[in-house]
């Protein structure tokens, strides 16, 4: 079955404040959607609500991936159903090596008794690390501990490539990356493009979209998608900023949930 992901009327709150005010979005396998918008407009909240972060409460709506509502599932079940979120701020986990973590994540998708062999795992991991130009020592470092911003982002992409998800959400994957790293990460994403995988790329710069060409571009303000278009929309935002969108829609303050 071709991948299909439908977000319908999604509302979410944090600490009792409603942040997402009804998100509708459909992503098919093979498509790349970009969500753009200034800081504080609810982009990360969308990503976190989809993944099931414990602080975010979904109050309405569904997010159906190939017939199953992710919002009914626990976080780990969402992941095993095929959702992957490259986080804006990945956690650091002292004492757990990157490779032990990755192997646990791969084996979580396999039946007991058919775990990936150590040799096969190492070969896969090392191969992908090489493609991402990661120093092999990162396999033995503790998960994200002491990684620079850029190293964490590469590590997120490494996980994405090893876990083979159906829907990938990248939250500000470009922040903290220099131009070389940006190219490497973009190549990693482009190599993963396929008919049965959909992408949702969250960014507030157009820069990343020079390397990963989206099929659809959406603008988020005040916890809603306020405008959608093709790649040309991203280009216009890059050239002219967000003010014209605000003017067009009569928005004064684009943020959401701020006192």
């Amino acid at each position: 079955m071709a991948t299909q992901f439908v977000i319908d009327g999604l509302k979410a709150a944090i600490e009792g404040k409603e942040i997402l005010k009804g998100i509708n979005l459909e992503i098919k396998g093979g498509e790349i959607h970009a969500i753009m918008g200034p800081n504080g407009t609810g982009k990360s909240t969308l990503a976190s609500a989809l993944m099931g972060h414990p602080k975010y409460e979904v109050t309405e709506g569904t997010a159906v991936l190939n017939g199953e509502d992710l919002l009914e599932m626990a976080v780990d079940e969402r992941a095993r159903a095929g959702l992957f979120l490259a986080m804006q701020y990945p956690s650091e986990i002292p004492g757990v090596t990157n490779s032990d973590f990755l192997r646990s994540a791969i084996n979580a998708r396999r039946e007991e008794g058919s775990e990936i062999s150590l040799i096969k795992f190492i070969r896969q991991m090392e191969g992908k690390m090489k493609e991402l130009e990661m120093n092999p020592e990162f396999a033995h470092r503790y998960l994200n501990e002491g990684f620079s911003g850029g190293e964490k982002k590469r590590n997120e992409i490494l996980q994405m490539t090893l876990l083979d998800p159906k829907i990938v959400v990248l939250d500000e994957i470009d922040s903290g990356l220099d131009i070389d790293a940006l190219k490497i990460v973009s190549n990693g994403v482009n190599a993963m493009r396929s008919e049965d995988r959909g992408f949702l790329i969250i960014t507030h710069y157009q820069r990343l979209l020079n390397y990963i060409t989206p099929d659809f571009v959406h603008v988020m303000m005040q916890g809603r998608i306020v405008k959608s278009g093709g790649p040309e929309l991203a280009q216009r935002l890059e050239n002219e900023g967000y003010d014209w969108v605000k003017e067009e829609l009569g928005i004064v303050d684009e943020t959401v949930g701020q006192a």
């Binding site: 993944m51 992941a79 979120l85 986080m87 986990i93 004492g95 973590f101 979580a108 876990l163």
Partner: peptide, 22 residues
């Protein structure tokens, strides 16, 4: 949450964190 978001069960996630602590 981070570990679970990679498909690891809650129980295994906590176990990994506790082992990591030691």
């Amino acid at each position: 949450y981070y570990l679970m978001s990679r498909g690891i069960t809650k129980q295994d996630a906590e176990r990994l964190i506790i082992y990591g602590f030691l």
